[in-house]
Amino acid sequence: MQQPIAILDSGVGGLTVAREVMRQLPREKIIYFGDTERTPYGPRPAEEVVRFTREIVDYLVQFGPKMIVIACNTATAVALEDIRSRLNIPVIGVINPGARAAIGRSTTGQIGVIGTEGTIRSGAYEQALRQLNPHVRVISEACPLFVPLVEQGNFRSNETREAVYQSIGHMRSYSLDTLILGCTHYPFLVDLISEVMGPQVMLISSADETAREISAILHNEGKLSRGDELPVHQFFCSGQPTMFKSIAQQWLGEQIELTPVVWQVPKIG
Score class of each variant (00 low, 15 high):
E117H: 05
N133D: 15
F155W: 01
S106W: 11
P134W: 13
A75Q: 13
G98H: 05
Q152P: 00
I204Y: 07
G64E: 14
M197P: 00
M1D: 05
Y41M: 12
E28C: 04
P266A: 10
L60V: 06
E254K: 15
L189I: 07
T36G: 12
V61E: 14
I70Q: 08
D9M: 01
P144D: 10
E257R: 13
M67R: 10
V91M: 06
E141S: 13
L181T: 04
L25V: 11
G169S: 06
G42K: 10
E141P: 01
R54K: 13
W263A: 04
E55N: 13
N158I: 07
L192A: 03
I217L: 11
G13P: 06
T259W: 01
L252T: 06
Q255Y: 05
G13M: 04
S238K: 09
A71H: 08
S140H: 15
I56D: 02
G93V: 03
V91G: 07
G98D: 06
R137E: 15
E117D: 12
G153F: 05
N96F: 02
D208L: 06
E229P: 00
R100W: 04
E221A: 11
L176A: 11
P241S: 03
S85E: 06
Q200W: 00
P90L: 02
T210G: 04
R130D: 08
A124W: 04
T53A: 05
M197A: 02
R44K: 14
C237Q: 07
L218S: 00
K29D: 01
V113D: 12
D177T: 08
L218D: 07
Q3H: 08
R44L: 14
L145D: 14
I89A: 12
S246M: 15
I68P: 13
G198W: 01
P134E: 11
G198N: 00
L230K: 14
R51V: 01
Q255N: 09
T39K: 02
I180Q: 08
P266Q: 10
G198L: 01
G269Q: 05
V138G: 03
L230S: 15
K267M: 07
E37N: 05
I111W: 02
E151G: 09
M202W: 14
P45H: 04
T184F: 08
Y125E: 12
R54Y: 07
A216P: 01
